[in-house]
Design a protein around this nucleic acid. Structure first.
Lengths: 156, 156
DNA sequence: ACCAGTGAGTAGGAAATTCAAACTCACAAT
DNA sequence: ATTGTGAGTTTGAATTTCCTACTCACTGGT
């Protein structure tokens, strides 16, 4: 019997349980930028070393990063993103875009990302089927699990 | 003088500082689904009531949610997403897609989202300029702040 | 040989956060 | 008069985080 006080089953919650802890997505940011060494991560993220070590273990266990040796004698390591990790980069880019617009409000942006087409990347989340931009008003949720109805989209 | 041990200035970090705490994005999920009442949030998210109260205060202060009265006598409230909050929904959808693929591996998905075009939503992050899908290999980062070079994209 | 430096962590203890359960307060319904 | 509901707050224990220092293995300079 399922305990009646479990939270809603949800892939967003699942994803956040893996990568939603403090620093985890920043680790992925740095690794995607090519800064995969422990001391670089400590400096660039500002995380305590022990916490960072724990996050790295977790991300490697989850198959999001791999730890590879880049120097035997002295033994030195580097973390890299697996394909699953790289597929989180669009999430990071979308989050960056949101932060650029809503927190920094378009001024003094600390980082630009260039797309291979030559222009500055402005990520847009679209529907694979129709190509249209994904906007709240165009979405309707259908829970597949009994007992988890939604009351219907609303906005402020 | 800037302390030389600050972490990398970054809109991703800024965004996560606002919405990256445990439960915050799940609050937004529920609010976007139309479940904006305190006890609904407690049940659907599984968060402790005191923590939820703190997160709600923070999200309202940040301009991501608003608190509105839906009943005077007895006074009762409901949280709703502001436009800035709604613009985070694409991030949630992208995260959901990642979780569907990499954690639930496509089986027994607990929620489907229908796009207004009629098909099940599969969110794809694209470049606004060229319309192409955003993939790691096509991105090049350009830090705008001295001292924050990157070593160049790499993968496992 | 000796000393300083680097990379990748681990150890220890104080400080901050989270958690679960109980409690409050205002009102409504029976 | 008692029970119930929504929206929190309070309390004290359990868990995490944070900071500083330390280790270990090696390299490079003098």
């Amino acid at each position: 019997m399922a305990a009646t006080k479990d939270p809603r089953p949800c892939s967003i919650a699942d994803a956040l349980a893996l990568v939603g802890e403090k620093y985890s997505l920043l680790v992925l940011r740095e690794v995607c930028l090519g800064n995969g060494r422990f001391d670089q991560l400590v400096r660039n993220i500002g995380a305590p070393r022990d916490i960072l070590a724990a996050r790295l273990r977790r991300l490697v266990d989850a198959g999001i990063l791999t730890k590879r040796v880049y120097s035997e004698r002295p033994q030195r390591f580097e973390y890299r993103a697996t394909p699953a990790g790289l597929e989180l980069e669009p999430v990071l880019m979308t989050l960056k875009e949101w932060g650029d617009r809503h927190i920094r409000k378009g001024a003094d942006l600390p980082m630009a990302v260039e797309h291979s087409c030559g222009s500055d990347l402005v990520p847009v989340v679209t529907c694979q089927a129709c190509g249209g931009e994904v906007r709240h008003e165009d979405l309707k949720a259908h829970p597949q699990v009994p007992g988890w109805a939604v009351t219907g989209p609303t906005a402020a």
